[in-house]
Design a protein around this nucleic acid. Structure first.
Lengths: 191, 191
DNA sequence: CCTCTCATGTAAGACGTTACATGATTCA
DNA sequence: TGAATCATGTAACGTCTTACATGAGAGG
């Protein structure tokens, strides 16, 4: 349901073909969304059938490069887009993270391995934070909304990193001061 | 793929039947995950076929209440669960939010309506924060991992609220000091 | 000519949601 | 008896992912 309107939104900036749309989404939202051709091409076909976009075939003589299909948003498409844009979002946020799913149950596994997995996550998010901060700079010129979304990306990233560090510290402390004195094998290599 | 292991994880605490599992997930993770019978019952059947859990029918004579199917985790199930638990998560976090999806494109809509939608979000997250903080108290006694996850919930909630307030302020400022002087209809009812 | 990138597409399957059907038990 | 709750299930639908098939153009 969402991709449909994302495509419509992008076509308001400029006419595009499927391949470009994917490229654009990946470049700009790649760290938050993923998209693939299995979603794009069927959605473009559907949007055209609904009269929200129109298609123009570009052949080799027109411009260089292989033939492609250029899509433009129609007036009807613009109207439908604004209707959606100004409607209240029906659903709430969903967050799904295979690491967090495991985390809840880490009590059933080896504490050392848990720390290793936390460290893996920390380096993943550190890398990502760097990329997001770079993007933030790249978009300084852009719309206020795009900028704010980019800021949300870094804010969120920072929050997760803070939480991971906090979790790491608490776990090390928890297993080292264990009254039972059983689980003292935990690695002490704190930074 | 995830629900399968969540069920396995819950069955390590105690034997349960499908209805209880749903109840449990909703009570404890309801603000983060949603689950429904269309996922639970087929997954239980599959887990049983794979020999990771076993089923025992409970009829009216055994205990009060309607007949149900009690599932227990097997040794094989425990092993498979730990294998999964200690494996590195294959995928990264996904966050999908219909509000955020709209937000990027708010430049194409009415600024007043954008502010209204932001205010709607703020009240949604304020309510949620209250519930999450209450849960945090309820779980104080629980495992360190469950506690940390609950803390992540409130941290995240707080971060989003901060961001929404920041976004609201910046937008009000942006549209009131607009050089073109066109969009001065923006509501000034700041708190 | 060969390979890489650009470009469009589809089929199969995993995953998730909604809505409904069914029946037992409990309690007013 | 009738309504609410407990409990199990499935069918239809929609979305998302993976993997593959196809082909044109560009550059070495």
């Amino acid at each position: 349901m969402g991709i449909k309107y994302t495509i419509l939104g992008l076509l308001q900036y400029k006419d595009m073909h499927g391949y470009r749309i994917k490229e654009h989404i990946e470049r700009n939202f790649g760290h938050m969304w993923s998209i693939n051709y299995g979603q794009i091409y069927p959605n473009l076909k559907k949007l055209e059938e609904e009269g929200l976009i129109t298609m123009k075939e570009v052949v080799q003589n027109d411009e260089k490069g292989p033939p492609r299909k250029l899509y433009s948003i129609t007036q009807k498409g613009r109207e439908e887009f604004v209707r959606w844009l100004e409607s209240s979002p029906e659903k709430s946020m969903i967050l799904r993270d295979p690491f967090l799913m495991r985390f809840v149950f880490f009590g059933f596994g080896d504490p050392d391995r848990a720390l290793e997995l936390i460290d893996e996550q920390i380096s993943v998010y550190q890398e990502q934070l760097g990329r997001r901060q770079a993007n933030l700079q790249r978009w300084k010129h852009g719309s206020i909304f795009v900028n704010l979304i980019a800021e949300l990306g870094t804010d969120m990233n920072q929050m997760i990193l803070d939480w991971l560090e906090k979790a790491r510290k608490e776990l090390v402390h928890h297993f080292c001061t264990d009254e039972a004195g059983i689980k003292k094998t935990v690695k002490m290599n704190e930074k």
